[in-house]
């Protein structure tokens, strides 16, 4: 019996009767992070990281949930489980599973670059690594985040000078707070869309320092917003909510903005390449650091990436999942990174 099986409900650990990030209703689910395609509704029992708890409770309401700190080992039917930081969003975790000397790690979503608020990705030694590969192509190599934030702040400052309001879009959980942490509040006031404000409040309650924001209510002083920066979820672009602003410049922050065609198709004024997933180098570096011989890939360019891993000497395979391709401009999910 394999330690982890790939079932129609999700990743399954038969020895412990536990699923990880299942997409159908099961008894016990370990959930890597709060994005909606990884933490779904309807499980009898949830397990997640301490930092994920308030996020998941907010999203799923009244649920039966246990949480553990990163690095703290616990057992279910003799199988050992430990969560490690994945660097993807606040609270995101990799799941280490050990039984009878065999070790698997399921990465969830991750990035290796430390963004200052999402924890530092920690490579975990294992025999088998299940890795996401959303951006598993060599064309996806990210610029230093300092450079990206310099561009974003310059764009905002130039707009403010021209009395244009800057609308910056990013998913409400994760991306929005990361953007907030990188914005220079000295340029001007920062306003938020309701969906983002709620999430930001929860993240603030976890002692993550973020600049002050003002929630946009219907009776807000429109004149005062001129030249400000507005954080909004991607779904808000083109909606009637946007009509309240005067002259605007709209930008999107996502890894998909790397490719010109995708950027043009989003018809935003600016596309900033900023992702909460590992880039090509990051994926390769993370996989190497696990020391794993066997690697299964999920999310994104799985076929190309597993072929590449095989050519590098790994025993590589693909797991078909029902996770969304977060951030992807073609997916109309309101959450993701």
């Amino acid at each position: 019996m394999a330690l982890v099986e790939f079932r129609k409900e999700g990743f399954y650990v038969p020895a412990a009767d536990v699923f990880i990030d299942p997409w159908r209703r099961v008894k016990t689910a370990i959930v890597t992070h709060g994005h909606s395609d990884h933490s779904r509704w309807g499980m009898s029992q949830y397990i997640c990281s301490t930092l994920s708890e308030p996020i998941i409770r907010h999203r799923l309401g009244k649920i039966n949930l246990t949480s553990y700190d990163y690095g703290k080992e616990w057992k279910i039917k003799g199988v050992k489980f430990t969560l490690f930081p994945a660097g993807h969003i606040v609270g995101s975790a990799q799941v280490r599973i050990e039984h009878k000397g065999e070790i698997w790690v399921i990465s969830g979503d991750y990035k290796v670059e430390d963004d200052g608020i999402s924890g530092t990705f920690e490579p975990v030694k294992c025999h088998t690594f299940v890795s996401e590969c959303t951006f598993g192509l060599p064309v996806y190599t990210w610029l230093e985040q300092e450079d990206v934030f310099r561009d974003i702040n310059q764009w905002w400052a130039a707009n403010r000078e021209n009395k244009v309001t800057s609308i910056l879009t990013g998913y409400s959980l994760g991306k929005a707070q990361r953007l907030l942490a990188g914005l220079n509040p000295e340029i001007g006031p920062i306003y938020t869309h309701g969906a983002i404000e709620t999430m930001t409040e929860i993240i603030r309650s976890l002692d993550v320092p973020l600049p002050p924001t003002k929630y946009i209510t219907d009776d807000i002083d429109k004149k005062a917003m001129e030249g400000s920066l507005v954080l909004a979820p991607p779904s808000a672009t083109g909606s009637s909510w946007m009509k309240r602003f005067g002259q605007v410049s709209i930008a999107a922050a996502s890894g998909w903005m790397q490719v010109r065609g995708t950027r043009r198709r989003r018809s935003v004024d600016r596309g900033f390449v900023l992702s909460d997933h590992a880039d090509w180098q990051g994926l390769n570096q993370a996989i190497k650091a696990t020391g794993a011989e066997r690697v299964y890939v999920t999310h994104g360019y799985t076929h190309v990436f597993s072929k590449w891993l095989s050519s590098q000497g790994y025993d590589a395979g693909i797991v078909e999942t029902e996770f969304g391709e977060e951030e992807h401009p073609d997916k109309k999910t309101t959450e993701g990174s």
Partner: peptide, 17 residues
């Protein structure tokens, strides 16, 4: 070649890799 296919533009694919 795979990357090129997905980017859809040779000049851009080269610049990116």
């Amino acid at each position: 070649e795979e990357s090129y296919h997905i980017v859809g533009d040779l000049a851009e694919a080269i610049a990116l890799v």
